[in-house]
């Protein structure tokens, strides 16, 4: 399972870099979205893909029994998703406004500040 996930994550990274290298702004945005998803999946995978129970100590017990899921990695992903959501929402607005101002979707046309 972990191997499969690793391959999937690798594909996601590759696809996102490929999309970011294209000339279109929309594809750039798709690349950024894929990139943050790839990073989140990576954290999810490295924390261990076990079929665990929630890490809660049962009533009356002293310790957790059986394999448990790592809650910290999930908290990280949740935070990263929220941040990515905010940043990407900003990027959408930015690209839209840029399109209104520059009137093109082609990154090659944006050489005014180089």
């Amino acid at each position: 399972m972990t191997t499969l996930m690793a391959i999937l994550i690798g594909c996601l990274y590759a696809a996102s870099i490929y999309m970011m290298l294209r000339r279109s702004m929309v594809k750039l945005l798709i690349g950024l979205i894929l990139l943050s998803n790839a990073a989140n999946l990576l954290i999810f995978t490295v924390a261990g893909l076990e079929r665990g129970v929630p890490p809660l100590i049962a009533q009356g017990a002293e310790t957790i029994t059986g394999p448990t899921a790592d809650p910290l990695a999930q908290a990280l992903i949740l935070t990263a998703i929220v941040i990515a959501f905010g940043v990407l929402a900003f990027a959408v607005v930015l690209l839209h406004r840029a399109y209104e101002v520059i009137k093109t979707d082609d990154m090659n046309e944006m050489k005014g500040t180089d």
Partner: peptide
């Protein structure tokens, strides 16, 4: 706008690499 697109893209790329590194 042109400057911001470059700034935003490169910085988001860097953040994603940072996040990947934290994960590993």
């Amino acid at each position: 706008m042109e400057g911001a697109i470059k700034y935003v893209t490169l910085n988001l790329l860097s953040s994603a690499i940072f996040l990947t590194a934290i994960g590993l």
